[in-house]
Design a protein around this nucleic acid. Structure first.
Lengths: 149, 149
DNA sequence: TGAATGTCTACAAAAATTGTCAATAAAGTA
DNA sequence: TACTTTATTGACAATTTTTGTAGACATTCA
């Protein structure tokens, strides 16, 4: 449960932009993501500063992706708000916190495995795939159970 | 960075017990784990309630593992303090929080992958392995770089 | 009885999270 | 130019989580 609400909203917003034809403004993003508009007012400029989206001000303005959806990974978006993806301070890639030697040899490698798996999964998912999955019809199994009822 | 200090202390304490011949009392555990004794006073009873350690009161008392170290997984200890291991509320196995349909089809499966990888890794590591790794000498590569300096 | 130990509960301080708001800047249009 | 629409910025308050401490108590042994 370590993904904060802001991170979640950010990924939803990027997904919405990946699915949209043209630009979306803050009100449209708030509706699409089910996020408070006032929070998106903080989230979107952060995504912009990170080079993930670009914005246009004034009437008809809004946000759009700064790159093709296939080139934006989930890892990239998550990192803007979460920073290090290691589950604990002594297992980060950059400047890990110090820890006892015994921990260094045992628990640290364990958490590094979790870290690497997380990075690998998030780095392997892009917003073209996510947008496609989001558009897909409900799966057969879901329809089947609906028919049963 | 989602592993809390208490969880970390708990895993260190179980590791210390897995490496110890006989029982360790709170003072010894505090020294071995580099955790405040007052925090272990809360952590150890929780481990006991979870059936991971057992305790003996009175002079000569202390804690020991309730099962062979090989039978205690890291997942089991972590779950006592973290509960659900999903990175976000709508990707838990039990009673996930509701989320928009679009998220349900795209981001949720992504986070479920992270959840499953985490559980798989933590469930595959036991405290016999951790204790062995903790006892091991520094690796050759480490000595080599030390010689260079 | 007294010393050594674990148990329980309440709590306070600090930190992180979540959301709101008001003031401002920029761009388009009449 | 004046007005409207939109993004930008920074400060902030409320809430929740985390972290650690402390005191009163229970149990066991010598």
């Amino acid at each position: 449960m370590w993904v904060t609400r802001r991170t979640d909203y950010a990924t939803r917003a990027v997904l919405a932009l990946a699915m949209a034809e043209d630009a979306l403004n803050l009100d449209e993003l708030a509706e699409a993501t089910e996020a408070p508009r006032s929070v998106l007012e903080q989230v979107m400029p952060a995504l912009r500063a990170a080079g993930i989206v670009r914005s246009v001000r004034g009437p008809g303005g809004g946000y759009r992706l700064n790159h093709p959806p296939a080139e934006v990974t989930l890892e990239r978006v998550v990192r803007v708000f979460e920073g290090q993806l290691a589950p604990i301070g002594y297992a980060t890639r950059q400047e890990p916190d110090p820890c006892p030697v015994i921990v260094e040899r045992s628990l640290r490698p364990a958490w590094e495995q979790v870290r690497d798996a997380t990075i690998s999964i998030l780095g392997g998912i892009n917003f073209a795939d996510l947008a496609e999955a989001a558009r897909a019809e409900p799966k057969a199994s879901v329809r089947t159970s609906a028919r049963r009822t």
